[in-house]
Amino acid sequence: MRPRLSLFSASVLTVVLAYLFIQVVIPYASMWIADRPSPVTVPAALTVIYMLLVFIGLYIYITISEENVREFLQPILEFLRGGETGVRAGLRLGLLALVPLLVGWITYDRLAPKVQSLTGIRIQHPTIPGQYEKLINPYRNPTDDLVKQFQQQEGLDGIGLEEARKRLVGTALAEGRALYQKNCRVCHGSKADGSGPMAVGFRLRPANFRDPGTIATVVEAYAFWRISEGGRGLPNESSPWDSAMPRWKEELTEAEIWKIILAEYELADVEPRKPEKLE
């Protein structure tokens, strides 16, 4: 029979290995699996939970029998009860001196004032004002009137109404994309992912439209309100003083804003929320 590891050493080894696994193996494995540029650290809270699980597991295993407990405690007791002289005594003294110092350091670390970033409570999606609530995007499913108007403007009388409708939406989308890249790109990014060249300077980061929690959760009227009124149109609970969003109704026409919205959803590859049928 090969010599077997003492219960105490095995327990220590398990704890060390589990910790290394959480701190090293998981981050690198995640980096490889998720194809990230750098290791993905396990959040501290999760590390605590995992390590707690390890300790609970070990505790259960050790206390399963009297014999186990005795085997586990033996090296500790031997160490503490060792002789008065020699290397072991020196080691014991050092270790025993270290424990109170560690406690002192932890206490200091807890007490010393630390500057942490403030995380204020901010309402991301305040309620849309009444006058904006019922608006619909005229370019999503253009009415016959709008299509006929478009036909007249463009001299497209020869083609059918449905073909003209398709062309109107196509034109609006193309214009919207251009307007988006001209006006919105610098902050919200060419890819509509909220990482344009100017995004880094603003602590309230420009919205990432690809994030399912932004434009995908609101109706188009909501986007129209946010673009028209900008940061200054936000209520206080949504920290208007931190928003770099311009008040676009001062510079763009309503038609242009609707076209931008059409393009914004298309570029972000998400659908607007459907307005609820009221009454």
Partner: peptide, 21 residues
């Protein structure tokens, strides 16, 4: 037996990351 604990723990630990991404 002792090592079985460890293996079990490792299995427990794995789903925390970006699997499936």
């Amino acid at each position: 037996m002792r090592w079985a604990c460890l293996i079990l723990l490792m299995i427990l630990l794995t789903p925390s990351t970006g699997w499936g991404q």
